[in-house]
């Protein structure tokens, strides 16, 4: 079931180690059951260093995986080790971990600096140390100018960055981000992605989950794909991408004049079919997604089309999953 990709990313087989010679995160046959339902089945993984994308549809088990890493829930079977310790029994690994939860709820009444400072103190810092650290990380996530404002007034993207700042405050070796890009506007996405890439460059181990392939693609090549609680693939995204590009693809475009755009697009060799399901929507099918995706912006700009929205990225992961599972549901 698991295709043999050229594994340029780090995975179970190529266990890199941190300074104390223990992989940062180790899953050994971990499973989690809720009654009859299996949220995770037999996950074995070892991750150290670099940014790893955890990809999966909603309900694939990404959040369950992170909850186990963060010691929120106990695995039903198998072993989990964080810096060599069992996080359910021992909180010490969290001195070296930063966590960005998926939840939208935050302490809206606090200012960004207060929030980060307060939780920094839980790492054992004094008030002054915590404050200096908080200023440092808030500057790192580019919130220095608004750090004295209440979190409740922040946009979604700013809130995400506050959470990231709070996770970075203890200068952690492991950073876990649960869907950090969800609901953010493009500008915020770019800024958050830059932060994550920067962390990877600094040699931290970063786990970031998403159900949107294109997002992960812009951050890292090293991915783990979860599907229905199982580990479907570990490896390099490019290998998967190349395979996938040969696969039929759909691109949905919402625009003002779909007929005019359709005329322009049908001329591209790689486009197989174009259909107009609604009066402001266009669906393009292609076997060379990458080519079409690259051509699209220039066509739109050149012919002055009014486009509101392009593609449903879910389809991309969906098609990878379909491909990997051989079309089984």
């Amino acid at each position: 079931m698991m295709p043999d990709f050229t594994q340029t990313g780090k995975s179970e087989d190529t266990t890199s180690t941190t300074k104390d010679n223990v992989p940062v995160v180790v899953f050994k046959n971990v499973s989690k059951q809720y009654g009859q339902i299996s949220a995770l089945t037999d996950i074995s993984l070892a991750i150290s260093g670099g940014v790893t994308g955890i990809l999966g549809m909603n309900g694939a088990g990404k959040s369950t995986l992170f909850k186990i890493i963060m010691g929120k829930i106990r695995p039903s079977g198998g072993q989990i080790r964080l810096f060599g310790e069992d996080p359910w029994k021992n909180q010490s690994p969290y001195a070296r971990t930063g966590f960005v939860p998926e939840h939208e709820k935050m302490h809206d009444w606090m200012t960004a600096i207060d929030f980060v400072t307060t939780f920094a103190r839980l790492n054992g810092m004094t008030r002054e140390e915590a404050r200096l650290e908080a200023e440092r990380v808030l500057t790192f996530v580019e919130l220095a100018d608004v750090m004295h404002k209440q979190i409740g007034r922040f946009s979604k993207g700013m809130r995400q960055r506050v959470k990231i700042a709070h996770a970075l405050v203890n200068d952690p070796d492991l950073i876990v981000l649960d869907e950090p890009l969800q609901g953010c506007d493009p500008l915020a996405r770019t800024s958050i992605m830059n932060v994550i890439r920067e962390l990877g460059r600094l040699g931290r181990t970063v786990l970031v989950s998403s159900h949107i392939l294109s997002e992960i693609e812009r951050i890292t090549e090293q991915i783990v794909i979860l599907h229905k609680g199982r580990l479907l693939a570990i490896g390099n995204l490019h290998a998967i991408r190349d395979l996938l590009d040969q696969h039929p693809h759909k691109i949905a475009i919402r625009c003002e004049q779909p007929k005019r755009l359709a005329k322009d697009l049908i001329d591209i060799d790689e486009v197989t079919t174009v259909s107009i399901p609604a009066k402001d929507e266009l669906i393009v099918e292609t076997k060379h997604f990458g080519v079409v995706h690259n051509l699209l912006p220039s066509i739109i700009v050149k012919n002055n089309h009014h486009v509101w929205e392009i593609d449903n990225p879910d389809d991309n992961l969906q098609s990878i999953l379909e491909y990997l599972t051989g079309g089984l549901p």
Binding site: Q91, Y94, T97, H103, M106, F119, L122, N123
Partner: peptide, 13 residues
Amino acid sequence: DGTMHFMLAKPIS
């Protein structure tokens, strides 16, 4: 609320 995560993600029992 899920805000307990912020606290429990710290090295504190």
